[in-house]
Design a protein around this nucleic acid. Structure first.
Length: 421
DNA sequence: CTTCTCACG
DNA sequence: ACGTACGTGAGAAGG
């Protein structure tokens, strides 16, 4: 508890500086995107309007449900309508209806365009005096110890993984992180922890398989796949690796067979039952029993104490574990499995922030920490400080905590936030 | 004030 | 029998 308190107290000054310094936005690119998105939106509204009658509101889930399953006669793919008598019209459900009606892709695209337009609006909140965007970092804003960011939230800027120059919308989406730029003559130095939550799991579980994989710097997901499927490392297919990856990340949240089955269906393109998913999960825990034990001990601990605890002793009460409703207790168990992992990752990056800030001060550098995004730190530095900063950031992040496995950071330098990812 | 939807790690 | 992966913020709609 004291360690957490001391850390948070030192961090206050670092956070204050981040908020005060702010970050440059490329207004020209932002405005360009906005114009293009607005015309896209209007085209889509036009196309959608050919299917509607009367005063239809596309943003109303009630109106949309009525249009799709009433006027247009689409058959819902699920049995039950929700409490308000409407069928769900979220992306997952709409995707299942694309075969049934030509309007579906228009709606999905319209939603995407609207979401991106909201980001444009958020990025217009630059301060007229500094000409920079100043977010608020809520230092103790979450139950796990992570930061949250608001007004505007800079922790949920689009970050598309795939690229396709022919897909205009995907291209625009990729331009949002290009809008974040260093000041004239400076550079961004961006560092993110590689698989920090899985490394923390390796540390807590002391699972020999995980420890060895990280010690030898191996491809963990591929290695996991070779274990689950009982095949040689070199014979693992991309699909098997993707499934293993899905389990590796899912285990941190207490994922169940019912959650894994849709993942399997998505990855393979064939339908998979939860029984199949359960077999894969069983195979996983059979090969990594220490992970299973670790997750169970997280639950037992939280059950006995009434709270979960992180590396630094940060506590989170979990009253759900005492509920007399099974579903709430199950939810409590998942929280108890996840909190020590997610919360420890938060402890570590917070320690790294203080260390980096101290080191910059000590070396008399001009570089500034601008953003913190869960497992990533973004700095702005004069070109002359590039090499020293790259070394300083890596050193201080990788040595922020001493775990049984090495912490590893991926680091890039560049001229906008997209470039350093 | 809550629900839905959608963006991020 | 229950519901099924954790943690956030924002805007629109609906009650």
């Amino acid at each position: 508890m004291k360690a957490t308190y001391d850390l948070e107290r030192k961090l206050v000054e670092v956070v204050t500086k981040m908020e005060f310094v702010g970050i440059c936005i490329d207004a020209k690119l932002r405005n360009q995107c906005k114009v293009e998105l607005e015309s896209l939106r209007d085209e889509l509204l036009q196309q959608i309007s050919t299917f509607t009658t009367g005063d239809f509101n596309i943003n109303s889930t009630k109106d949309l449900s009525g249009l799709l399953f009433g006027t247009l006669g689409i058959t819902p793919k699920i049995e039950k309508s929700n409490n308000s008598g409407n069928y769900p019209v979220d992306k997952i459900h709409l995707l299942k209806l694309v075969e049934q009606h030509e309007i579906i892709p228009f709606i999905l695209k319209y939603r995407k365009v609207c979401a991106l337009l909201k980001f444009c609006t958020q990025l217009e909140k630059v301060n007229p005096v500094t000409n920079r965007l100043h977010t608020q970092f809520n230092q103790i804003g979450t139950d796990t110890g992570r930061f949250s960011s608001s007004k505007p939230n800079l922790q949920n800027i689009p970050n598309p993984k795939s690229k396709n120059p022919d897909d205009r919308l995907l291209t625009i989406e990729g331009e949002f992180r290009q809008m974040f730029i260093p000041k004239n003559g400076w550079l961004f130095v961006c560092a993110d922890y590689s698989q920090i939550e899985l490394r923390i799991m390796a540390h807590y579980s002391q699972d020999p398989f995980l420890l060895k994989a990280y010690e030898l710097n191996q491809d963990l997901h591929k290695l996991t796949a070779s274990q689950i499927y009982n095949v040689k490392f070199d014979q693992v297919t991309d699909q098997q690796r993707n499934i293993a990856k899905s389990i590796n990340f899912g285990l941190i949240y207490g994922k169940t067979a019912y959650g894994l089955a849709p993942d399997l269906t998505r990855i393979t393109g064939n339908h998979h039952t939860h029984e199949e998913a359960q077999k894969i999960i069983d195979a996983y825990f059979e090969k990594l029993p220490a992970v299973k034990n670790c997750l169970n001990s997280f639950i037992d601990q939280a059950d006995n104490l009434g709270y979960s605890e992180t590396y630094l002793g940060r506590r989170r009460p979990i009253p759900q574990l005492a509920s007399n409703k099974t579903s709430e207790r199950e939810a409590g168990k998942r929280i108890a499995m996840n909190t020590p992992i997610q919360g420890t990752a938060a402890d570590i990056i917070k320690m790294a922030m203080v260390k980096c800030d101290d080191a910059i001060k000590k070396e008399g550098l001009k570089a500034k920490l601008l953003l913190t995004v869960h497992d990533e730190l973004l700095f702005e530095a004069p070109k002359s400080e590039q090499q020293e900063m790259e070394q300083l950031v890596r050193e201080n992040m990788e040595n922020a905590a001493k775990l049984l496995v090495q912490l590893k950071v991926d680091l890039k330098t560049g001229n906008n936030w997209a470039e350093v990812h």
